[in-house]
């Protein structure tokens, strides 16, 4: 559908990848809504997936008491809601991640504060 307008109505998207220091990745840790929403972070496409988990995530998710118990080998991943298997040794780009992709991970056995999904 088009916008009902009094003249031509065309605009460039405000958030194309060229405007960011790096492509944006949205990341969420399932069952840990203490972090109230998924995060938006510009990660370099050359960053290795494993380095993101082990290098960047502690600064993002470390405040949760469950974080110290995360086993990255057991983690289940989803991309746009569908099960997905990233390669920890490959870069984000090599894993097929692009601008404004949304990924989530589930950590079996870890379901938040008193199992409340928070």
């Amino acid at each position: 559908m088009a916008v009902t307008a009094i003249g031509a109505y065309e605009f460039a998207p405000k958030d194309s990848v060229d405007k960011f220091p790096a492509p944006l990745l949205y990341v969420c840790w399932e069952d840990h809504k203490m972090f109230c929403s998924p995060f938006a972070v510009p990660f370099p496409p050359t960053l290795k997936f494993g380095d993101m988990c082990k290098g960047a995530f502690p600064g993002i998710f470390g405040a949760h008491p469950d974080f110290a118990k995360v086993d990255w080998d057991q983690t289940q991943w989803f991309k746009s809601g569908r099960p997905w298997r990233p390669d920890m040794d490959k870069t984000l780009a090599e894993n097929g991640l692009g601008h404004k992709d949304v990924i989530r991970f589930r950590t079996p056995g870890l379901t938040g504060l008193s199992g409340s999904a928070f």
Binding site: A40, V41, G112
Partner: peptide, 26 residues
């Protein structure tokens, strides 16, 4: 669903670790 979260925050705050999220949201 919600009480465990607030109790956790209160406990953390009491121990001097009031939770502030510093990563930007989607």
């Amino acid at each position: 669903y919600y009480r465990p979260l607030w109790e956790h925050y209160a406990k953390e705050q009491k121990e001097g670790r009031r939770f502030y999220n510093t990563t930007l949201p989607m």
